[in-house]
Amino acid sequence: MSGNYNPAEPDPLADAGYREVPDAEGGAAGRGWWDANAEEYLDEHGAFLGPADFVWCPEGLREEDAGLLGDVTGRRVLEVGAGAAQCARWLGTRGAHVVATDVSHGMLAGGLRYDAAEGTRTPLVQADARALPFAADSFDVAFTAFGAIPFVPDAERVHAEVARVLRPGGRWVFAVTHPLRWAFPDDPSAHGLTATRSYFDRRPYVETGASGRVLYAEYHRTVGDHVAELTGAGFLLERLVEPDWPAGHERVWGGWGPVRGARLPGTAIFVTRLR
């Protein structure tokens, strides 16, 4: 990193691609990126996600239909990497005692705005998913929809922390970009249907600023990597859900869209239970 970097000044994007970066730099980039981009993200995707709805993925799979968390009535539920806590807010209307955490102050500020607009009060906690500020055995269910796991080099720490705060037999469900997608360009058109990288190339996707600072990092894990990390933390894999792209769903979200969605899985949802 350049010694001339001033955090008060803009740091324009200078480079993007797949390469190794120090874990400490890559793992710390997420908070700054989401703080800087929270409002733009919510402006772009807020209508699709809703202020109080539970959408698992760009395919539009909703918890109301999928029931991956089971009956949450009266249960203590933790959302990890909650963003603006749309999912947690919806669960609160279903009788769950829910807490939402995110590393980004900007995303949680969006959650406060949603609470004000909806007349709700969602418990929001700023925390790194690798160091959750809760006592052991505090929750019955934990989940994340594309939060935390893709943005850290050491997702095994996330699983270990979730295992610590869950009661024995507790459920942990998380959605990530389908690992197969990493072999293909992040392009929702027909150009994204030809593999250009090895599925086994685990170098993260990294964006670097003009200062040399890591602005954004996203990490690839194979299906086998995810399973190994889960079982290493004491979880049993019950289901692996790969949502279909629904007919008539025309919305494009980054690399997700109807062209690729008809041929390639875009999302993987791991449904697990703590031993």
Score class of each variant (00 low, 15 high):
242 E>I: 02
229 E>D: 14
188 P>L: 10
263 R>A: 12
251 R>T: 14
272 T>L: 02
64 E>S: 15
11 D>N: 15
90 W>Q: 12
178 H>V: 09
69 L>W: 10
144 T>Y: 02
56 W>D: 01
212 G>Y: 05
98 V>R: 01
12 P>N: 10
84 A>E: 10
24 A>D: 15
234 G>R: 03
156 E>Y: 06
135 A>H: 11
211 S>G: 07
92 G>M: 15
29 A>F: 12
41 Y>W: 14
99 V>A: 07
191 H>E: 15
87 C>R: 11
101 T>C: 12
136 A>I: 00
255 G>S: 14
30 G>L: 00
66 A>T: 10
270 F>G: 04
266 G>F: 00
52 A>H: 11
100 A>S: 15
13 L>D: 00
256 W>P: 01
93 T>K: 11
227 V>T: 04
207 E>Y: 04
243 P>L: 05
182 W>C: 03
79 E>P: 07
99 V>R: 03
100 A>D: 10
257 G>Y: 08
217 A>W: 10
165 V>A: 07
184 F>K: 03
48 F>K: 12
8 A>M: 13
35 D>Q: 00
252 V>C: 02
68 L>A: 09
140 D>S: 10
77 V>E: 03
19 R>Y: 09
83 G>Q: 08
79 E>A: 00
51 P>A: 14
98 V>I: 14
147 G>T: 09
140 D>A: 03
254 G>H: 04
125 V>P: 01
99 V>F: 05
9 E>H: 15
155 A>Y: 07
49 L>S: 12
108 L>P: 01
251 R>N: 10
275 R>L: 09
122 T>S: 08
12 P>Q: 08
141 V>G: 01
235 F>T: 02
208 T>N: 02
235 F>Q: 06
102 D>R: 05
73 T>L: 15
204 P>I: 07
195 A>D: 11
43 D>L: 05
257 G>W: 05
42 L>H: 11
101 T>K: 07
237 L>C: 07
87 C>A: 15
3 G>W: 01
210 A>G: 11
159 H>E: 02
90 W>R: 14
217 A>I: 09
156 E>L: 02
12 P>D: 11
273 R>E: 13
274 L>D: 05
95 G>K: 11
124 L>R: 13
4 N>R: 11
40 E>D: 13
8 A>Q: 14
132 L>P: 03
274 L>F: 09
153 P>K: 03
83 G>H: 06
127 A>L: 08
80 V>R: 05
15 D>F: 13
38 A>R: 00
229 E>C: 03
247 A>R: 12
